[in-house]
Design a protein around this nucleic acid. Structure first.
Length: 260
DNA sequence: ATGTCGAAGCTTCTTCGA
């Protein structure tokens, strides 16, 4: 089975691109971020026409995440637990069939956190602590678990073409990277890195200054696998061709293939 | 040299967020 994650930067602006991608690649499960749509305005029928079940956690104007699945979605949870005052739509969970058992899937959009030294950066770090706690709860279920989405963290220098350009950015702060490592050290496998060690592996290129033409990218869209899911990892990839198309998202799809 | 984009609103430009 193929699971793909993609920050589409607006489902209305990207609907035709997304439908074309899904027709071509036909992933079984799709985690979307930055849908920038309320639930009622999400183009669910268009995805249903391609055979997908749809679960959304939307918000007006910004943020918003979704999970599409060719198999029915069960036990949907909307919102990252741990802070009832947090109104941002950045987290959705669902269970989907994986062979003869079930897999838990999360589509997440981690806060950007810029500029550093503000309440936005504090929110990012607090959110990452809540994410780790929720991940610990989900790991206790001992079913295959996939955390997929825009983590807004550059884990290491090798994950940026020009790491020096990001030293004052929230995505590359030592606190952000330490929180990432703390999460990974719960026992997760970074699927992209497991399959593609080495430099030049990026998932985002800024719209500005011809970043894509210069391959001035960063790797911030990740798929983390629990040990039960990592045992099934066959391959992974990044579909950077979508970044060269008309009216692209600034992020590209990242996918894994699991044996099941 | 924020060389850009998407959404929203007292909308045809401005502001916000990324």
């Amino acid at each position: 089975m193929i699971l793909t994650t993609w920050n589409i930067n607006g489902v209305k602006a990207r609907l035709e691109s997304a439908l074309t991608y899904l027709r071509q690649h036909s992933p079984d499960v799709v985690c979307l971020q930055e849908i920038k749509s309320v639930d009622d305005a999400f183009p669910t029928p268009d995805f249903q026409d391609l055979g997908y079940n749809v679960a959304t956690n939307g918000q007006k104007g910004f943020n918003g995440v979704a999970i599409l699945s060719k198999s029915p979605l069960e036990d949907v949870v909307r919102g990252l637990p741990g802070d009832d005052s947090d109104q941002h739509a950045r987290w959705i969970e669902a269970s989907v069939p994986l062979g003869n058992r079930m897999m838990r899937v999360v589509s997440l959009y981690l806060p950007n956190g810029n500029p550093i030294g503000t309440e936005k950066f504090a929110y990012k770090l607090a959110w990452m602590t809540r994410m780790r706690r929720r991940a610990e709860q989900l790991l206790e279920d001992e079913m295959p678990l996939v955390l997929a989405g825009d983590f807004n963290v550059i884990p290491e220098s090798v994950d940026a073409k020009r790491p020096a350009a990001w030293v004052n950015d929230a995505l590359f702060q030592s606190e952000s990277r330490a929180a990432w490592r703390t999460l990974v050290n719960e026992g997760f496998t970074d699927a992209t890195r497991a399959c593609h060690p080495g430099p030049g592996v990026y998932t985002f290129w800024d719209y500005q200054a011809g970043a894509f033409q210069k391959d001035d990218g960063i790797r911030i869209d990740h798929i983390l696998l629990s040990s039960q899911a990592a045992d099934l990892l066959v391959s992974s990839g990044i579909d950077r061709a979508t970044r060269a198309q008309e009216k692209p998202s600034d992020h590209v799809p990242v996918w894994i293939k699991l044996a099941a």
